[in-house]
């Protein structure tokens, strides 16, 4: 993990949100993993491709709950969360890694769920916005977003909150510049950025008060 600020400093384990480079590495690894899985499961040791329609068995851990599912290899984590598990807090915005509306935590780090295949998420802890709420009680970041009015239409908000959560887990007391950089992978077309900056700062205080 790098201590440097700014996008260039973000490598694979980027604590500041999502880096595209990190994604490429992950997909690479995922693809290799798939090839191996296919090789183990079939007689065709050289097959690296599963036809699009072919279902594939995965076990996903989402917000601490284990789900056993049959998915197509092309299905993204975003698609599986929404269309198969009915968890619609995670939003599609562009489905090509440009907006951050789909941000989830994978092993505690912010990732674009639209650029993560469901099969890649196997064996990792996935946390979505739903996982930050306790019953009907908002979590610290959610509370801060409410208090500071860090949203307008609210459609980018799930991604913003999860990205902020990821940022604060890696950097509990971020400076303003770290907040701006850390949140720069999440577009807000409504332009609520100023309030988002304030909310992330406030969330860092609330998290500390809550002893986290």
């Amino acid at each position: 993990m790098t201590e440097k600020d700014g996008k260039e400093g973000c490598g694979d384990g980027c604590p500041h949100g999502v880096s595209r480079r990190g994604f490429m590495t992950r997909v690479g690894a995922g693809t290799i993993g798939l090839g191996v899985a296919a090789a183990a499961g079939t007689a065709e040791a050289t097959v690296h491709e599963i036809p699009p329609g072919e279902p594939h068995r995965v076990t996903l851990t989402v917000n601490g709950t284990t789900h056993r599912l049959l998915v197509e290899p092309r299905e993204t984590l975003l698609y599986v969360l929404r269309e198969r598990l009915g968890m619609t807090a995670t939003k599609p915005g562009c489905e090509r890694g440009e907006c951050g509306a789909c941000t989830v935590l994978i092993d505690g780090a912010a990732r674009y769920a639209c650029l993560t295949l469901a099969v890649e998420a196997e064996g990792h802890e996935v946390t979505t916005l739903e996982g930050l709420t306790k019953g009907e009680e908002p979590g610290a970041v959610q509370r801060a977003f409410m208090d500071e009015d860090a949203l307008q239409c609210g459609y980018c908000t799930p991604g913003q909150i999860v990205a902020a959560e990821g940022l604060l887990r890696a950097r509990p007391d971020p400076t303003l510049e770290e907040i701006r950089t850390g949140m720069s992978g999440n577009l807000c077309r409504c332009g609520a950025y100023v309030h988002i900056f304030r909310a992330v700062k406030k969330a860092s205080v609330l998290r500390k008060d809550a002893g986290r």
């Binding site: 807090a89 916005l129 908002p138 409410m146 908000t157 909150i161």
Partner: peptide
């Protein structure tokens, strides 16, 4: 704060 802030920040 918004009257519907909770719905929007919780994903509900």
């Amino acid at each position: 704060p918004r009257v519907d802030a909770f719905e929007r920040v919780s994903g509900k």
